[in-house]
Design a protein around this nucleic acid. Sequence first.
DNA 1: CAGCATCCGCTTTGATACTG
DNA 2: CAGTATCAAAGCGGATGCTG
Lengths: 220, 220
Amino acid sequence: MRSYDQYCSVAKSLDLVGDRWTLLIVRELILRGACRYTDLRNGLPGIASNLLADRLRELEQAGVLSREDAPPPIATTLFSLTPRGEELEPVLAGLFRWGIPLMGDQKPADVVKSHWLAGALEQMLVDHQPTGPEATIVLEVGNEPIILELRGGAVAVRTGRPKAADVKLTGPPMPIIGLLLGRLDPGDARTRVIDFQGDLAILDRLHASPGPAITLAADS
Amino acid sequence: MRSYDQYCSVAKSLDLVGDRWTLLIVRELILRGACRYTDLRNGLPGIASNLLADRLRELEQAGVLSREDAPPPIATTLFSLTPRGEELEPVLAGLFRWGIPLMGDQKPADVVKSHWLAGALEQMLVDHQPTGPEATIVLEVGNEPIILELRGGAVAVRTGRPKAADVKLTGPPMPIIGLLLGRLDPGDARTRVIDFQGDLAILDRLHASPGPAITLAADS
DNA sequence: CAGCATCCGCTTTGATACTG
DNA sequence: CAGTATCAAAGCGGATGCTG
């Protein structure tokens, strides 16, 4: 990309990561860790192969990612973020958050990947009942299950094979996200989302009102 | 811009603000507040006029900014961020910070505007001596003076005409930034920078070590 | 002058095919 | 698997012109 030729740190940042696809490559590496070329292609549906190669070269040049040949048994090239590249995480976190309201309508052309949703949920979810028991929520959505683990006030989000779940939600992405963020109540959800299993009360821990007593106290 | 067609909040964000120039327009509106078309052109040297018009239309459409005709005496159109647009501030803040290490070499082609530097400094500076007296630092750099006001632990950064200054630094941008961030000591600075006026000790308040006593305590 | 729209040459991107 | 090569289409930059 042609430089903006502005002595401004935003412009200098965008000189390096402002190209089309570039921040999505960083997204993949943040969410997935070290990736093969093919993993990146799978995580970036729509990218042209030559563009991916170009971008990887530019990002390596810029010190954002590094390329290393994995040891003999694997025999492949792995791309991963450098520490400098990982410093882009706050920028990506901002974009994950800002884009949530734009995810209302999943267009027919839209591809869904579970790890993208996991990244967004990680930015948005808080356990408002930190003293509660550990709990596991599993979402069957996208191409692989998403696992939310509530423990000590934190919500860990990952994808993969779940062992056990206190609640399991199966259905299309949008109503499930709305339900988790508290923008859709279980009544509406039942008509749009598909299937609940387990104790729905656990979902209340993700919403803002810890209980009537505190709500009343805030009102007084 | 063509959509990425990915059901991911980062991709959806970039569908709206990932185009060339778009985030720099948001930068201008965050730093400057409501702007006229001409103000934006001045703050975005290098942009083609038609492109600016296109982007403003797209951003208005996306709900990021609004256009309003100022009242009669002014008779111009003002562009300003909507609340939704202001929510991009964390993203811009991230880019301001991430780009600081890229500002080493001001290339001959680079344009400098003081309000860009002000935005970067606002993200980086902290007063480590919050109980100290109020102090004003003035930077004569770029096209207009930058005023740093230390008060109660906060560092307010603005551009404009200063009233009085405890320290005044005059010179090229890079060494002045280095000096403020503590990456360049006054000895080196004197050979590269320029001109000091006033009490340089105030600059120490911007650096990490609050004093020998605390440093020793931390070591023990 | 402020706020665009049009035109044109150049660069970047997208889609697909091909290779060590 | 990890890329190149090719070429058409889209996007961008710069100049200029138009309208209140």
